[in-house]
Design a protein around this nucleic acid. Structure first.
Length: 202
DNA sequence: TTCTAGATTTCCT
DNA sequence: GGAAATCTAGAAC
């Protein structure tokens, strides 16, 4: 299990180091395991793309001010949940958004969560799109606001290390067209040639 | 394979 | 009121 010291570091380093790590979620005995293949860093008060830009603290984003290893889940467009891991010391409101994962087990359960049918009945299009986006992976792993404010240091939801070798691509973040000077910041990281990545570099 | 509208919570960026 | 750290179905090509 990755400990608090892992998350209590520079957010860009945590975002990069989370690639290849394994998210483990235990839903009453159903144990999901999935590899993190794409992340984005949100750098707190100076990052116009972050919810906490300008040190704005709201009911929604107050979890970002918590200590390293806290789970921040919020809803966007009214329907999609986004999964984030808080980094840095308490009151430094930075976090890493998990943008894509590669399922390692529970393919039928994940398929039911996403499309209401087992994996073998999915179209090839559905298989390719099963967890390649931040709103998709939360639905696949049955993640919602119940996890908001929890930490990553318990047996029901945590991240574990893995020794896989891969190359990393660095790119600008997705879906922040409003963020002016922050639009082009190279704060997105993903595993090269992994088919579950949401958006490839142009 | 690409486009569009519509889903609807939280905060006004 | 309007947009958001997004996704889907249905249509067109």
């Amino acid at each position: 299990m990755l400990n608090k010291e892992f998350f209590k570091r520079d957010t860009l380093i945590v975002a990069k180091d989370l690639l290849g790590k394994i998210i483990v979620k235990n839903d009453n005995g159903i144990i999901y395991k999935a590899k993190i293949v794409e992340t984005e860093a949100y750098l707190g008060v100076d990052d116009r793309a972050a919810h906490t830009f300008g040190d704005r603290k709201t009911e929604r984003n107050k979890i970002m001010y918590e200590d390293a290893g806290t789970v921040y889940v919020y809803q966007t467009y009214g329907i999609h949940f986004m999964l984030n891991f808080v980094t840095q010391d308490k009151n430094i409101p930075e976090a890493v958004l998990i943008r894509a994962i590669e399922p390692l087990n529970q393919f039928d359960k994940i398929s039911l969560n996403r499309f209401g049918k087992i994996y073998n009945e999915l179209t090839s299009y559905q298989k390719k799109n099963i967890t390649n986006g931040p709103g998709k992976l939360t639905k696949a792993l049955n993640i919602d606001k119940d996890l908001n404010g929890n930490n990553l240091f318990n047996q029901s939801f945590f991240v574990e290390d893995d020794n896989s070798i891969f190359n990393i691509i660095i790119d600008k973040r997705i879906g922040i067209d409003y963020a002016q000077e922050a639009i082009d910041f190279p704060y997105r990281f993903y595993i090269k040639d992994n088919s579950y990545v949401s958006v490839l570099k142009k």
